[in-house]
Design a protein around this nucleic acid. Structure first.
Length: 590
RNA sequence: CGGGGUGUAGCUUAGCCUGGUAGAGCGCCUGGUUUGGGACCAGGAGGUCGCGAGUUCGAAUCUCGCCGCCCCGACCA
C-alpha cells in the first residue's frame, strides 16, 4: 500500500494554458506528466505506474503471440539508414547525433541518428544471425523509447518527439507464412486493446513511408483524433481515409461515347475549376478534368481527377516514387507549356511530354463524358474531351479522396466517417528490407531465399492518453481497472484519528489480499479537497472513512463510475470490499 | 516549412489600445478559527513583465529583430 502523503501526486486545480483537449488537461492536472518542452514529457510517479501497466500487458500479449523480447540501441550508426530503402524519406524526421562533445567540426551528414523505429537495425542483425529455415519464423519485439523530430508535436503525449512504442519485426520463409504471422499479430493487438478496457478498431491503412503490401491501423474513436475512418456498418468495411475506396465507378460501367470533336475556346483569366463553373462558361466541376503536376524523385508526372474531386496525396505512394511533392509553376511551364489553371493531358497538347515520368488518372474521370480541360495554352480550354479518345493516360488508379456518403466498395451502402486516434499499426512488409540488407536463409533444398518480413507498432504512451480521452468525465479520469495506477483509494478524512487509520490499514491489507493496489489518502486536507482529487485521478474504487460514517458504524464505498456512495456496515466491509474488487477487476476484461 | 495566436510570481491571469508606483485569484510559509465536495481571518515570502536592440526624461505598454509555446495544414505510433 502507498500513502499519498509520502508519495508524489501534484494535482492542479486549473488546467494549464497550453492544453487544449480533455485528455491533455487531465494528464497534467492529475499529476501524471509534466512538460519539459514541446513534445517532451516527464512521466511523474503516477503516470509512470500507468505506463508500467501498459507495457506489462503488452509484453504478456506479445509473449503469448510467440514474439520474443529483445532490446536494441536507440542511437543508430547513420550507415544503417543510408544503406536502407527509406533514408531519403525518413531523414527529415530523424534527430541527428553529431560528435558535439569532442570538438570536431560537425559534418554534413550525421555520424549517428536517434532511432525512430528499428527495421534498419533488426534486419542486419537477423541477416547475420539467422541463415537456416530451421530458425524461422521469428518475431522480435521491444518496448522502448522512440525519437522523431515531429514537424508539429501536438496534444501532449498524442504526438510527441520522444515516446514509448512497442515495435515488433517478424521474419518468415515465404509470403504465406508472413501472412500468418501478420494475422497472428493482428489478433494479439486485438486482445491487447481489449484487456486495456478500451475500444480500438482495426481499419485498412496506407503503408506510407514504411512500404510493404498491406496494413491495418488500430484506431480509438475520438473527435480529437488525427485520422478519418471511413466505414460501413453493413459490410464491416473500415479504412483510413488515406486508403479508403468507394464504388463510385461500378464494375460494369461503360465509358460514355464521344459526341463531337475537341474544340478550343478562350477563357481569359480563368485559372480555377470554380471560375469555369461560373457564367458565362457554366461548366459543372464534375464535367471538368483537374490536371495536377507533381514531382516524383525529381521528375514531373501528371495526375488527372474530376473537377469536383480532391487528390488523396497518400495514394500517390502506389506509384513507387520514394519522395514526391507538388510541382511549382516554374517547373510546370516548360513541361506543359502553360501555367497552372490551363493544364490538360489531351494528346498532342503537352509541350514536352518526354520530360514526364507518367500520366496517371483516377478511375472516376471515366464518369466524365465530353468534358473540359486546359489546352496547355494560357487562357485557353478544350471542350468535348473524352477519356479514351483524347487523353494520353498511361495508367488508371485510385487517387481521389473518399467522402462519407459514397457507396461502400463491399455493400454499396453509403459510407460513414468518424475521427480516430491511431494507437497501433501493423504492416506486411514483404522483402523490401530483407532484399536491401541481404537477409536470406537456406531452405531444405539448399536453395537461398529472401525472408519475408512484417513490422508492428503500438504507441504505448499515446495509448495512455487515448484511454483518458475515451474514459473521463467532467470531474476527471475514469481508469479502467487493468491500467489504473492504483485500484483502490482509501480516503481517510481524519488521518490523525487512530481508529480511522487502523481501519484504513486493515481494509487496505484486505484489498491487497484480493490483488488490488491501494493508495491511502492520509493527507491532512479538508474532505472537499480529497474528494476532488479522488475524482480527478480516477481510481476505480474509493473507500471513505470519516467521523460521520464511523459514528454510524459504516464505511463508504464508491466505484468511480457510480453516482452515489454505498454505506457498508463495518462488519461487512471486508467481504463487501473483496466482492467489489472481484466485480470491478473482471468487468473491464470483457 | 506556410498561416494564425500567445509569452507578466510555481499555476491561472489583469494591466498593453491611450507610456509614469506591476495587481489579483490559486498554491506556498506563520498564527488562529474551521473540518463530508477545491474553508475563513490576519500576517508573510515570491517578479530580469520571454531575450536583445531602438524610440523616449521615462517602456510590461510603442517599433524592429530573435526565441519559446499553442492552434490550423503536410507527417506519424
Amino acid at each position: 500500500m502507498t500513502f499519498w502523503s509520502r508519495f508524489f501526486i501534484p494535482t492542479l486545480k486549473e488546467s494549464p494554458a497550453d492544453a487544449e483537449i480533455a485528455s491533455h488537461k487531465l494528464l497534467v492536472r492529475a499529476g501524471l506528466v509534466r512538460k519539459l518542452s514541446g513534445g517532451l514529457y516527464t512521466f511523474m510517479p503516477l503516470g509512470l505506474r500507468v505506463m508500467q501497466k501498459l507495457t506489462q500487458i503488452c509484453r504478456e500479449e506479445m509473449n503469448a503471440a510467440s514474439a520474443i523480447e529483445l532490446w536494441m540501441p536507440h542511437v543508430h550508426p547513420v550507415e544503417n539508414w543510408q544503406e536502407g530503402p527509406r533514408w531519403a524519406a525518413a531523414r527529415e524526421i530523424m534527430f541527428r547525433v553529431d560528435s558535439a562533445g569532442d570538438g570536431r567540426r560537425s559534418s554534413r551528414e550525421p555520424e549517428f541518428v536517434l532511432g525512430p523505429t528499428h527495421e534498419e537495425v533488426i534486419t542486419p542483425l537477423v541477416k547475420s544471425e539467422i541463415t537456416s529455415y530451421r530458425d524461422l519464423p521469428k518475431n522480435f519485439y521491444q518496448i522502448a523509447t522512440k525519437f522523431r523530430n515531429e514537424i508539429r508535436p501536438r496534444y501532449g503525449l498524442m504526438r510527441a518527439r520522444e515516446f514509448v512504442m512497442m515495435d515488433a519485426y517478424s521474419f518468415d520463409v515465404n509470403d504465406e507464412a508472413a501472412v500468418k504471422s501478420y494475422f497472428g499479430m493482428k489478433a494479439a493487438y486485438e486482445s491487447f486493446f481489449r484487456r486495456l478496457g478500451i475500444l480500438a478498431i482495426a481499419v485498412e491503412a496506407d503503408t506510407g513511408v514504411m512500404g510493404g503490401s498491406f496494413s491495418h491501423e488500430f484506431m480509438v474513436p475520438a473527435e480529437v483524433g488525427d485520422d478519418d475512418i471511413i466505414y460501413c456498418e453493413e459490410s464491416g468495411y473500415a479504412a483510413n481515409r488515406e486508403k479508403a475506396t468507394s464504388a463510385l465507378v461500378p464494375a460494369e460501367f461503360v465509358d460514355p461515347a464521344a459526341e463531337e470533336a475537341v474544340t478550343a475556346f478562350d477563357t481569359p483569366g480563368v485559372v480555377t475549376i470554380a471560375a469555369l463553373a461560373e457564367a458565362p462558361y457554366s461548366l459543372p466541376p464534375s464535367k471538368q478534368f483537374k490536371t495536377l503536376i507533381y514531382i516524383g524523385d525529381g521528375k514531373p508526372f501528371v495526375v488527372i481527377l474530376r473537377g469536383n474531386d480532391e487528390l488523396e496525396e497518400a495514394k500517390l505512394g502506389q506509384l513507387g516514387f520514394s519522395v514526391f511533392r507538388p510541382a511549382t509553376p516554374e517547373e510546370i511551364l516548360p513541361v506543359m507549356g502553360a501555367k497552372p489553371g490551363s493544364l490538360g493531358a489531351v494528346r498532342g497538347t503537352i509541350a514536352n511530354p518526354g520530360a514526364l515520368a507518367g500520366i496517371f488518372a483516377d478511375h472516376a474521370v471515366r464518369l466524365i463524358g465530353n468534358g473540359t480541360t486546359g489546352a496547355n495554352r494560357d487562357g485557353v480550354h478544350l471542350r468535348n474531351v473524352n477519356v479514351k479518345r483524347d487523353l494520353a493516360i498511361e495508367r488508371f488508379g485510385d487517387f481521389r479522396k473518399v467522402h462519407a456518403g459514397e457507396p461502400c466498395p463491399k455493400s454499396g451502402r453509403p459510407l460513414k466517417s468518424r475521427r480516430g486516434i491511431e494507437v497501433g499499426h501493423i504492416f506486411k512488409l514483404g522483402t523490401k528490407y530483407s532484399e536491401k540488407y541481404g537477409a536470406t536463409y537456406t531452405d531444405d533444398q539448399k536453395q537461398t531465399h529472401l525472408m519475408v518480413m512484417g513490422c508492428y507498432g503500438i504507441g504505448i504512451s499515446r495509448t495512455l492518453q487515448a484511454i483518458i480521452e475515451q474514459s473521463h468525465d467532467a470531474d476527471g479520469i475514469i481508469w479502467p481497472w487493468q491500467v489504473a495506477p492504483f485500484h483502490v483509494l482509501i480516503c481517510v478524512l481524519d488521518p490523525q484519528v487512530t481508529e480511522a487509520m487502523d481501519l484504513a490499514l486493515s481494509l487496505a491489507a484486505e484489498a491487497e489480499r484480493h490483488g488490488a493496489e491501494v493508495l491511502i489518502d492520509d493527507r491532512s486536507e479538508r474532505p472537499g479537497v480529497k474528494f476532488k482529487d479522488a475524482d480527478l485521478i480516477g481510481l476505480p474504487l474509493r473507500l471513505t472513512i470519516g467521523g460521520k460514517g464511523l459514528k454510524e458504524g459504516v464505511v463508504e464505498m464508491k466505484p468511480r463510475t457510480a453516482k452515489e456512495a454505498l454505506k457498508v456496515p463495518l462488519a461487512d466491509a471486508s467481504a463487501r470490499l473483496a466482492a467489489t474488487i472481484k466485480d470491478l477487476s473482471s468487468a473491464s476484461r470483457t
